[in-house]
Design a protein around this nucleic acid. Structure first.
Lengths: 345, 345
DNA sequence: ATGAAAGCGCTAACAA
DNA sequence: TTGTTAGCGCTTTCAT
């Protein structure tokens, strides 16, 4: 019964116990064939006997691969209670993380969670990548004009974005056909008889918000509806409340609202009820995302589903291919939204 | 204008450019004094000129430190839509992550996100730690009898738990004085005049749920209330709805409810309104956590605040000290809850 | 105050 | 099929 903490057995130790060379042990560990079955067995036994666990750093040093990737969320320093809290607590981000994790886990790859809400933080992220802490990055930007994509291409760091960057960059991204989604919402609202429509948008400096608005407006116009009140929010619940409040005073006869995400729609629903408006009878509401809050509402939200988890998985797939082949050209993959009809419209 | 991707300058390169030895460059990089100021300058210039970025793997190999830690969430494979989605989308977990990230970031440490919902996954997590991918682990278990803490101590992996483990283990943890929190809730409910109280608990196999229940029951008993209907939930919103539904049929005259977390309380509120009960006039409701959903409810939740972010930061602090000093004895740090009075009670 | 040199543990040619 | 041998890029005694 030895009991020293045994500062880790090395390949050398295993080799000695198994009576073979380090190279051979390395081969069986890395699943390279051309190793006698008998010897494989011996090696395995030696590994078990020594409690050997390969040293990641040593391996990375020679393979030039960290074996994990970075999941970075970039934004501007949250006004009040911190960027970290608001973003990590946002169900949308949770879905992105879940999608990436589920795809990566079977591959033995884990995401390094990094937030970049200041220039300093962004620089740190780039440094970490350059130092090889991670082999590439999955990037979710929460604001337009994020300098990070550009920093990544400049540093030669493999990266994939969630959503098309505001300024063109030679970098891969995954996105949703936002306009199509908005169109789905418009047609559903129109079909159920709404005639006085309005929309609560996301921050208008981000492409996704612009696209959802454009898609909704175009679809309305195509159906002859020239006028569309527009209220701008910031994708958080409270802004949905504020916007709906204003909408109700400025356009009291509104009978249908397209809200650019579920969190704001949730806030809108709250205000609607407070004002005694029945949903969907008096005012129909369609959200966007199909995130958990859509189910937490009463009535439950009719919403445009964005397959976030699948999109995140695709990001990971793309990233891996860029890591594999550094010369690969940037690619974009666009997903289709679907309408999930529940009780609010 | 050279233009090859320049497969990374090394210490050697910097040394050559600066006209000094590798050792000296290493010293200035690691901020070791005893380096001539002139030379420091020269080295810095050389670093800038070469665009040098230290190689993490090489450094880790000699220092035996990965420079990052693991943030692992352990649980059982979610019944329906996956463990990853439900946990990463849970505001409670988001707060833990935010607290850890905020504490660790200034130190240049990032968390490696790992989920462990199967035996296989748990083994993988332990392997990664043993391989030195991370220097230690922050663990949040979502179910009782999680084998991971034990696996960690057995593997000699530094780790700190969120919440006392169901089975005693020589391992550090951070926790809340759940009983005190429940007592706060009980006294508030009693003080506002409620007389027919009930409670919706979390899964009763986890210590936190048991403690909240015990604390509430004891406080009630001390005030002469012998009978307390108990409904068990699972910390998710839907279970709060189900429980409240049952409570209303079995104990229609209930006038106050203590719900073991905000998510379930949110569900309870929904059901209450659906049944035409006014909150807090007919039924007062007190939640637990003070998570984002507490504000998303109408009326907003009166709830027992758990300083999750501070607790997570403390976990990180403890973990770092265990990494620093492997011999350090396990420690526990208990935080005090506070009552946040809003509209629901 | 600085440099020389010995590894850290592993993979990958290259031989045999 | 297996072993030998170079390193990967860095930190760290130990001299100087």
């Amino acid at each position: 019964m030895g009991d020293r903490p045994a500062r880790g057995a090395t390949l050398e130790d295993v080799a000695r116990v198994a009576g073979v060379s380090r190279a051979t042990v390395s081969r069986v560990i890395n699943g390279i064939r051309n190793v006698d079955v008998e010897i494989q067995e011996a090696v395995r036994r030696a590994i078990a006997a020594t409690g050997y666990a390969p040293n990641r750093a040593a391996r990375s040093l020679v393979t030039r691969r960290a074996g994990n990737i970075a999941l970075v969320v970039s934004g501007s320093p949250g006004a009040s209670d911190g960027f970290s809290a608001s973003v990590l607590t946002d169900p949308f981000f949770g879905r992105v993380a879940a999608g990436a994790v589920d795809f990566l886990r079977p591959l033995g790859i884990h995401p390094l969670l990094m937030l970049a809400d200041t220039d300093q933080a962004r620089e740190d992220v780039v440094d970490h990548l350059r130092q090889g802490s991670a082999d590439g990055a999955l990037l979710v930007s929460t604001h337009a004009e994020d300098p990070l994509p550009e920093l990544f291409v400049r540093a030669g760091v493999p990266a994939v974005l969630f959503a098309r960057p505001a300024t063109p960059s030679p970098i891969s991204y995954v996105d949703l056909a936002h306009q199509d989604g908005a169109k789905l919402a418009a047609e559903h609202l129109l079909a159920r008889g709404c005639r006085r429509l309005a929309t609560i948008t996301g921050p208008l400096d981000v492409p996704a918000s612009q696209d959802r608005l454009a898609g909704f407006r175009d679809a309305m116009a195509r159906h002859g509806h020239a006028y569309l009140p527009i209220l701008e929010g910031d994708f958080k619940q409270e802004s949905g409340e504020t916007a709906m409040e204003r909408l109700l005073t400025e356009h009291p006869r509104v009978d249908g609202v397209f809200v650019a995400n579920d969190l704001m729609a949730q806030g809108a629903l709250l205000v609607l009820r407070q004002h005694g408006r029945r949903v969907p009878e008096d005012v129909a509401v369609v959200g966007f995302d199909d995130s958990p809050p859509a189910l937490a509402c009463r009535p439950q939200l009719t919403t445009v589903r964005q397959p976030v988890e699948d999109m995140a998985a695709e990001m990971a797939r793309l990233l891996l291919s860029h890591i594999e082949d550094a010369g690969r050209d940037p690619a974009s993959v666009i997903f289709d939204p679907t309408l999930v009809v529940r009780a609010s419209a």
